[in-house]
């Protein structure tokens, strides 16, 4: 295995900093990892770095990079949107495709999943979404929910256990109502407003991206923390807005960013299991 520091440009000519994990043998697949809204290519508790190293040992080629305006990359922090990040992700896909003809997967973490959703292309072999929130929702609602953590406890205990999340997936629980109860009134200004103003989404972005996501048919894995307040609403949203049912894994007791060594380990193991299954299905 080798790790290469690299810099590549996005379509706006901004330099993005990344690391390419190159396996010893011809890779089974290539993977681009997308970090969260205010994170870096290493992820919380270095989770993406560690995952990339582990997956590379299993013969996957991995690219991680900082979005423009994040981490070490060039670009303006304030002007980054899901649209600019979508462009960065596509530049990363192109960079990776120039390295290897292996099938390409995308892996997102937290808001990185929103970029994954916004960036899917027919040629992608699959998507792995860790703690995926509702796509392009008003973030103030989500934030309000998190801030009301103490009040969430009773909802979380009731809803976020393995027996009830299965009901959510089957549509037996009204996640809209749950989300309303959990999120409170919501908020005003948003990173997800469509206005064509700098730092906001171009008009029509959300619907155009959603249309592509709904048409995307490749396999996908979604992993959530069992104590993450976003889980019920997000599971319901993906159930209702995806073109194909996801494989879902719930890490019991875990929070949004899997802040614990054992939770992190479980996420990696579940992902590797899924990758094995994904490969077996491709070989059929």
């Amino acid at each position: 295995m080798a790790e290469h520091a690299l810099i590549f440009p996005n379509a706006r000519g901004e330099n993005l900093v990344g690391v390419f994990h190159e396996p010893l043998q011809t890779p089974r697949a290539a993977m681009v990892m997308l970090h969260g809204w205010s994170g870096t290519r290493c992820g919380p508790h270095q989770m993406l770095t560690r995952a990339a190293r582990l997956f590379c040992e299993h013969n996957y080629a991995i690219l991680r990079f900082d979005f423009a305006g994040r981490g070490d990359s060039d670009g303006d922090t304030e002007l980054a949107t899901l649209a600019t990040m979508q462009g960065d992700a596509r530049a990363a896909f192109a960079w990776m495709r120039a390295q290897t003809p292996a099938p390409l997967l995308v892996l997102g973490l937290c808001s990185g999943c929103e970029i994954a959703v916004a960036s899917v292309e027919d040629s992608l072999g699959g998507a792995i979404l860790w703690s995926a929130p509702v796509f392009a929702a008003l973030p103030s609602e989500e934030r309000a929910a998190k801030k009301r953590g103490a009040n969430l406890k009773k909802y979380a205990r009731k809803l976020l256990n393995p027996s009830t999340y299965a009901k959510i997936l089957r549509g037996q629980i009204d996640t809209q109502a749950v989300s309303k109860a959990m999120a409170g009134g919501g908020g005003a200004a948003s990173k997800n407003l469509e206005s064509n103003q700098p730092g906001q989404l171009p008009r029509g972005f959300r619907n155009a991206a959603l249309e592509k996501w709904r048409a995307f048919e490749a396999p996908r894995l979604q992993i959530y923390g069992g104590a993450d307040p976003i889980t019920p609403e997000a599971l319901g949203w993906y159930r209702d807005n995806s073109g194909r049912e996801a494989d879902v894994a719930l890490i019991e007791g875990a929070n949004h960013s899997f802040y614990g060594l054992d939770w992190e380990h479980q996420v990696f193991e579940r992902t590797l299991e899924w990758l094995g299954k994904w490969q077996r299905e491709r070989e059929k």
Partner: peptide
Amino acid sequence: LMETYDIDS
């Protein structure tokens, strides 16, 4: 305090 001033973790 938590509810009135939106105190998060």
